[in-house]
Protein backbone atom coordinates (compact mmCIF):
# COMPACT_ATOMS: atom_id res chain seq x y z
CA UNK A 1 0.00 0.00 0.00
CA UNK A 2 1.23 3.49 -0.79
CA UNK A 3 2.60 5.42 2.11
CA UNK A 4 1.61 9.01 2.60
CA UNK A 5 4.67 10.97 3.50
CA UNK A 6 4.14 14.07 5.57
CA UNK A 7 6.18 17.08 4.41
CA UNK A 8 8.82 18.76 6.55
CA UNK A 9 6.56 21.72 7.09
CA UNK A 10 3.15 20.51 8.21
CA UNK A 11 1.40 23.84 8.19
CA UNK A 12 -2.13 24.79 7.23
CA UNK A 13 -1.45 24.66 3.52
CA UNK A 14 -0.03 21.16 3.82
CA UNK A 15 -3.02 20.09 5.88
CA UNK A 16 -5.42 21.40 3.24
CA UNK A 17 -3.54 19.52 0.53
CA UNK A 18 -3.32 16.29 2.49
CA UNK A 19 -6.91 16.29 3.69
CA UNK A 20 -8.20 15.27 0.27
CA UNK A 21 -5.82 12.31 0.03
CA UNK A 22 -6.71 11.06 3.47
CA UNK A 23 -10.42 11.55 2.97
CA UNK A 24 -10.54 9.69 -0.31
CA UNK A 25 -8.82 6.62 1.05
CA UNK A 26 -10.72 3.39 0.78
CA UNK A 27 -9.86 -0.14 1.73
CA UNK A 28 -9.80 -2.28 4.79
CA UNK A 29 -6.33 -1.57 6.11
CA UNK A 30 -5.11 1.47 7.94
CA UNK A 31 -3.39 3.95 5.71
CA UNK A 32 0.35 4.18 6.45
CA UNK A 33 1.57 7.69 7.16
CA UNK A 34 5.25 8.53 7.41
CA UNK A 35 5.89 11.40 9.81
CA UNK A 36 9.63 10.80 9.95
CA UNK A 37 10.57 13.98 8.12
CA UNK A 38 8.36 16.38 9.97
CA UNK A 39 10.29 19.38 11.23
CA UNK A 40 7.37 21.64 12.01
CA UNK A 41 3.96 20.40 12.99
CA UNK A 42 0.87 22.59 13.09
CA UNK A 43 -2.58 22.34 14.58
CA UNK A 44 -4.29 22.10 11.19
CA UNK A 45 -2.31 18.99 10.28
CA UNK A 46 -2.89 17.54 13.70
CA UNK A 47 -6.64 17.93 13.24
CA UNK A 48 -6.52 16.30 9.82
CA UNK A 49 -4.54 13.33 11.17
CA UNK A 50 -6.90 12.95 14.11
CA UNK A 51 -9.92 12.97 11.80
CA UNK A 52 -8.20 10.51 9.49
CA UNK A 53 -7.40 8.26 12.43
CA UNK A 54 -11.09 8.14 13.30
CA UNK A 55 -12.12 7.54 9.71
CA UNK A 56 -12.31 3.81 9.00
CA UNK A 57 -9.93 2.13 8.38
CA UNK A 58 -7.84 4.86 9.99
CA UNK A 59 -4.14 5.55 9.68
CA UNK A 60 -1.00 4.04 11.07
CA UNK A 61 2.19 6.00 11.64
CA UNK A 62 5.15 4.24 10.20
CA UNK A 63 7.79 6.77 11.17
CA UNK A 64 7.70 9.62 13.68
CA UNK A 65 10.27 12.38 13.84
CA UNK A 66 11.29 13.82 17.19
CA UNK A 67 9.57 17.03 16.28
CA UNK A 68 6.37 15.16 15.46
CA UNK A 69 6.49 13.35 18.79
CA UNK A 70 7.11 16.61 20.57
CA UNK A 71 4.05 18.12 18.93
CA UNK A 72 1.97 15.17 20.06
CA UNK A 73 3.38 15.44 23.56
CA UNK A 74 2.63 19.12 24.06
CA UNK A 75 -0.90 18.58 22.79
CA UNK A 76 -1.55 15.57 25.02
CA UNK A 77 -1.93 13.16 22.10
CA UNK A 78 1.11 10.94 22.49
CA UNK A 79 -0.93 7.77 22.85
CA UNK A 80 -3.60 8.64 20.32
CA UNK A 81 -2.13 7.37 17.06
CA UNK A 82 -1.54 3.82 15.98
CA UNK A 83 2.08 3.17 15.24
CA UNK A 84 3.50 0.32 13.23
CA UNK A 85 5.09 -0.78 10.00
CA UNK A 86 3.37 -0.37 6.65
CA UNK A 87 1.36 -3.39 5.63
Amino acid sequence: MAVIELPRLCDRAAALALKGDLADTTGSEALPVDAGNVERMGMAMLQVLLAAQRNEPGIVLTERSAEFDRALAVSGLTETFNTGAAA
Binding site: L16, A23, A44, V48, A51, A52, R54
Partner: peptide, 11 residues
Protein backbone atom coordinates in the same frame (compact mmCIF):
# COMPACT_ATOMS: atom_id res chain seq x y z
CA UNK B 1 -13.84 17.24 15.60
CA UNK B 2 -15.96 16.20 12.61
CA UNK B 3 -15.36 13.49 10.08
CA UNK B 4 -12.50 14.18 7.74
CA UNK B 5 -14.69 14.84 4.71
CA UNK B 6 -16.70 17.39 6.67
CA UNK B 7 -13.88 19.25 8.28
CA UNK B 8 -12.14 22.45 7.33
CA UNK B 9 -8.53 22.34 8.55
CA UNK B 10 -8.60 26.13 8.95
CA UNK B 11 -11.21 25.80 11.70
Amino acid sequence: LPQIDEMDPKE
